[in-house]
Design a protein around this nucleic acid. Structure first.
Lengths: 245, 245
DNA sequence: CTGTAATCTTTATGA
DNA sequence: TCATAAAGATTACAG
C-alpha cells in the first residue's frame, strides 16, 4: 500500500518566483505550469492556494480585490488556502492602513470566511508549505487526527495508568486511582462493565452502583460515555452481554 | 444574543500580560478574569481563543501538548481560534526544529484541523484581534459564517483506537487494525487474553496462536509485553500452561 | 510536526 | 521442523 510517489502540483504562469523554486525541487515534488484563472497553485481538484505577498495583501484589501478573489476561490475549490507571505513589521509600518483594518481583515478571512490562513516568511517558505500540503493530500494516507506518544521510561504501573488515560474524561489522576484500586487495565474495564447507572422512577440517571462506586470522582456520565466506547453498547442494552466470571 | 454597546470577554488568570492590556481598554471592551481550563480567552459560548507565543508554540509542538489543547478546545467550542503571536525570524532560528516541521504543524492546524489561525506581532496586537472578534460577535449584527468545515472531533472508533495506542508497540496502524477486527477495546483485550505464545520443543518462542494470529503484524513479543501490562501475569506463568501435544 | 534510528514480524533459506 | 538472515513494516525517539 506504500507507493513511493512524489506529489504533483499546478502553478499559474505568473508565479515566476514560485516556479523557479519548484524547478529546484524536482526530486521531492513535480509541477506543471498553466494559465490559471482562480488560483495560484492547484494541489488537487479540491485544494488550491492563493498566494499573497505582504504589500499586495494590504493593497488588495483596500480596493476590495482580495475578497473577490477569495470568494471565487471558495466557489471553485472546497478547500481554498491563503498563503500570506512576509507580513512583517515593515509592511505594517509602510502601508497607510490602520491596525484595526488589517487585523479585521485577517480575522474575517480566517474565522468568518473559514479560509485556512497560513503565514510564511518568504517565497521559499511558501513553496515549502505547498509541498507539505501536496504531500499530505496526495501521498500520505489519512493519518488519524491525534496519536499518542508515551513518555519515555515508564514502569509497569505507569504504563497501565497511561493506557487508561485514553478513556474519556480520564487524566493522570483518575487513571492512577483506577490502577491503584483494580491493579490492571483489564480489571478496570471489568469494573466499568460491572458498574451500572441507577435511574429514578422517571427514568433519569441518579447515580451508579458497583465496583466503581467505591472510588470518588466517577459518576454516571463517566460511565455512560466510556461504556459506549469500551463495549460498544448503549447503557440500556447492558444485560445482553452479561458475561459470567 | 443581546446587543451591547461594549463587548465583554473572559480571560484566564494566567494571561497576565493580556489582562494588563485589557485593563487599559475599559472604554472599548470589558473583561473578567477566571480560571479557565480549556482556553485562554472566551468570547462567547461558541467562540474561544488559544494564545501561543512563538517560543511556546514550537515547544508545544514537540511534546504534542499543542494538539491536545487544540483538540480539547475544538470539542468545547464550535469556533476555536488560535492566535499565533510573534512567530518571527528569531523564533525560527533559535529553536532546533526543522522548517518542515514548523510549517507542517501550521498546515495541519489550519487546513487539516480547520482551526482559524491568526498571526499577530505581539500581545498588543493579539488584544486588538480579540477585541475585533468580540465586537463582531457581540455587538455587530452577526453575519452568518459562510461555511465552516464540520468539526472534526474524535468519533467513537477513533477514540477506541486512541485508547489502544496506549499499549506497548502499538501505534495508529496497529490500533486501527485491532479495532477493525475486534470492534471494541474490551474485545481486543479479550482477544489478547485468549491468544497464546507457541514454543518450540527446545523452549524458544516460535509464534502465536489464537484470535490475534489472524491479523498480521502481531508476534510473540507483542503478546508477552502487553499481557504483562494488561493482566499482570508474568510470561513464565503463561509458559507453564503451555501444553505441547 | 518531521525525519531517522530501533524494533518487531514475516518470508526466505539452509541445516 | 528448527534456526538464522534478510526484507518489509511500524513504532519509538530526537530535534
Amino acid at each position: 500500500m506504500s507507493k513511493k510517489l512524489i506529489p504533483h502540483v499546478i502553478i499559474d504562469v505568473r508565479e515566476k518566483k514560485l516556479i523557479e523554486i519548484f524547478k529546484r525541487k524536482k526530486e521531492s515534488i513535480t509541477h506543471e505550469v498553466k494559465q490559471l484563472d482562480v488560483a495560484d497553485v492547484v494541489i488537487t481538484n479540491e485544494v488550491a492556494c492563493e498566494r499573497k505577498e505582504g504589500f499586495d495583501f494590504i493593497a488588495s484589501i483596500m480596493d476590495n480585490r482580495l475578497f473577490e478573489q477569495l470568494l471565487r476561490l471558495k466557489e471553485t475549490y472546497t478547500t481554498p488556502i491563503l498563503l500570506l507571505e512576509g507580513l512583517n513589521q515593515e509592511v505594517f509600518e509602510t502601508m497607510g492602513m490602520s491596525l484595526s483594518s488589517i487585523y479585521g481583515a485577517l480575522s474575517f478571512i480566517s474565522y468568518k470566511l473559514g479560509i485556512p490562513l497560513i503565514p510564511t516568511r518568504h517565497v521559499q517558505d511558501t513553496a515549502l508549505v505547498i509541498e507539505r500540503i501536496a504531500y499530505r493530500e496526495q501521498v500520505k494516507d489519512n493519518a488519524p487526527i491525534l496519536s499518542r506518544k508515551a513518555p519515555k521510561g515508564m514502569n509497569d504501573n505507569e504504563r497501565r495508568a497511561y493506557i487508561l488515560e485514553g478513556l474519556i474524561d480520564t487524566g493522570p489522576k483518575k487513571a492512577q486511582l483506577l490502577i491503584k484500586k483494580f491493579k490492571t487495565p483489564y480489571n478496570v474495564m471489568r469494573a466499568i462493565k460491572n458498574t451500572r447507572i441507577i435511574y429514578t422512577k422517571t427514568g433519569k440517571p441518579k447515580g451508579i452502583e458497583g465496583p466503581l462506586k467505591e472510588i470518588p470522582g466517577f459518576g454516571w456520565k463517566y460511565l455512560q460515555k466510556n461504556k459506549k466506547i469500551l463495549f460498544g453498547m448503549e447503557n440500556n442494552a447492558q444485560k445482553k452481554i452479561d458475561d459470567h466470571w
